[in-house]
Design a protein around this nucleic acid. Structure first.
Lengths: 345, 345
DNA sequence: CTTAGCACTTGTATAGTTTGAGTGCTAAAA
DNA sequence: TTTTAGCACTCAAACTATACAAGTGCTAAG
């Protein structure tokens, strides 16, 4: 249990350290704090805080820096999100102000805005109606030997891919395949489709085509791409700003983590209604040991919920970041509601 | 003009330095060279080479490193491409061996292979029939409010984009737009299309739609994307391996150069039938000052020519790299000929 | 409970020293 | 004329010593 004064000190330590990156000592705090006590008193309190594992020294006679637990306590009990800078609000509104013709453009743009505002790396996921179902599949012949496969879900997601077919594949064969898929698979959730695709379909499709594997591969490709959570990343390179000292290998593994769409959903964690902060080794993933992740859901009513997140150093200025993330998710939700309102009715 | 012995020394300096990264001195050379001369003799010869600007010292009493001109001379006159390691050949053949349904998959895969073989960053461009012409445009309605725009060129490139339309846009309106575009624009080269799109079309399209801008934007988008040279990058992160010391800013500008498709064509330069090497500041672009670029065309007969390239440090082992690039372009051309043969006839 | 005072620790910065690899030059040998 | 041994010289890098500043814990007095 912390006294008022200890909280004040912990708050100041976190503030100072996240701003300057330098361990903070008792003297500096004594000057800075609103109450009037000597540095010796502060030293005593700091010893108590260290006792509880909230702050620590970098070496035996250094100032203190927050431990992961200290950050945790700060984030849970002490921090107050900064109100957004008017300037930042302008940036958001003008960047989101344009005319968009795709949800994905808005979401992808959001990742960029968020990374610019924070100068960290940002992630955005679009609102996901869970259990999206397959609502349509087409094969569109494009020329002598090209066909485009298009898959649509009832959530409005579209996935497509062009591929080459040898010319002896007849148009009516293609149609037969499309009819088969639409008859058998439309209305199912994507995982169900994937399952059926491996069991029932190959047998049936063999009736129409001599070498069916090609088509199934294609359809499978498009399908799995549609099934996996898509996310956008903004400010990838910002990682370089604050990882300078850390070695190349850990940077590389971090980048491959970011580019690997499978893992990212796990990393971001379950959507919750609150803004959540994961600090350093609280995350299971080793590559994130020295980073913090702020995630937040945004809510677009019946169109589902999406997520935004920023990834920065453990010593990020949490109050400012929480302010930005909080404000941004509101703006994004508004924008999306507008967008849906326009195209829906 | 260089004597035989000077050439031998220059070659050895480049070899040694590209392998070890350490300036090479007279003593080490004396031991290593096939002829039997003292280090003093080597020193004299090195002084002569330095006189001609082919090698230089890092400080007044250091060993020598090649200058850009020295690399140039080495690459132009002294280097002999290493034959490919059998192991490397296996990698190429197995990686390209699979079944592909898209040219782009082969080209993109190639960038990955090439970056793995070299452990540098690799670029690949697909074979380009110059002056590709617009051969078709479609608008495919996908659901209540989504439409996909598809553009096809006679080179077989497909570009597409999904967008939302408000529901009061009628199907026959879409058809009218498509007909208009196909009547007026098919057969023209893409730059011509872009020009016409800005002049004639807006007037005509106004007859069919109240708010035509949306559609033209979409078409324009898809069009410009199709018009610009597409290229693939492999091993982006490898830049981190050999740029460790260099500062974050230059790394960032290099990455943004790589991701900016407009510039890359200029950087790679004109296709020539030979393998070409650009060294350090021979390249106009500032961000590439400390790098070297090896580019090569590959030839797929009537299907045009493409390019591959690798970007590495100025002190790359040129002989090995030239061997890899040379062998790879052959294999790639073969693979593509196979591919076209299968789908063409 | 607070604080002044003090001894102690440690990282950083600066300056001086040593070492080793390398150079250019000179004069003798080939 | 070319090659080579020898030597004085240069410079980066590694190490040592010293001083300094910021900070700590502890003690004893207020």
């Amino acid at each position: 249990m912390l006294s008022e004064r200890q909280m004040m000190i912990l708050r100041a330590v976190v503030r100072d350290f996240t701003n300057t990156g330098v361990p903070v000592g008792s003297k500096a705090l004594a000057k800075q704090l609103p109450i009037h006590v000597s540095s010796a008193t502060i030293r005593n309190e700091m010893a108590a805080l260290e006792e509880q594992g909230l702050i620590k020294k970098t070496h035996s006679s250094s100032g203190r820096i927050p431990s992961v637990e200290g950050y945790r306590y700060y984030v849970d009990h002490l921090v107050k999100p900064d109100p957004l800078q008017p300037n930042d609000m302008d940036v958001i509104q003008s960047s989101l102000g344009g005319d968009f013709h795709k949800i994905d453009e808005i979401i992808s743009q959001s990742a960029t805005i968020l990374s610019n505002l924070t100068s960290y790396t940002a992630f955005t996921l679009k609102p996901e109606l869970k259990d999206a179902r397959l609502s349509g599949f087409r094969l569109v012949p494009l020329g002598r030997r090209q066909v485009m496969a298009i898959l649509v879900t009832d959530g409005g997601d579209v996935e497509n891919q062009t591929f080459d077919v040898s010319e002896d594949v007849k148009g009516d064969q293609l149609e037969a395949v499309v009819r088969l898929i639409n008859d058998q698979l439309v209305g199912l959730t994507l995982p169900e489709v994937i399952k059926k695709l491996q069991l029932d379909i190959p047998v049936q499709i063999a009736n129409y085509l001599q070498s069916p594997t090609g088509f199934l591969d294609i359809f499978g490709d498009v399908l799995t791409r549609a099934a996996q959570e898509r996310f956008y990343v903004g400010g990838r390179l910002n990682l370089l700003n604050f990882s300078q000292d850390s070695d190349v290998d850990s940077l590389k593994s971090l980048y491959s983590l970011i580019d690997q769409s499978d893992d990212i959903a796990n990393v971001l964690g379950q959507p919750s209604d609150n803004i959540s902060v994961q600090i350093g080794n609280e995350m299971t993933n080793d590559a994130l040991r020295n980073y913090s992740l702020i995630t937040a859901t945004y809510d677009v009513d019946q169109h589902g919920k999406g997520m935004i997140a920023i990834l920065g150093p453990t010593r990020m200025p949490y109050s400012r970041m929480l302010g930005i993330v909080g404000a941004f998710r509101e703006e994004l939700a508004k924008k999306l509601l507008d967008y849906y309102r326009f195209y829906d009715e």
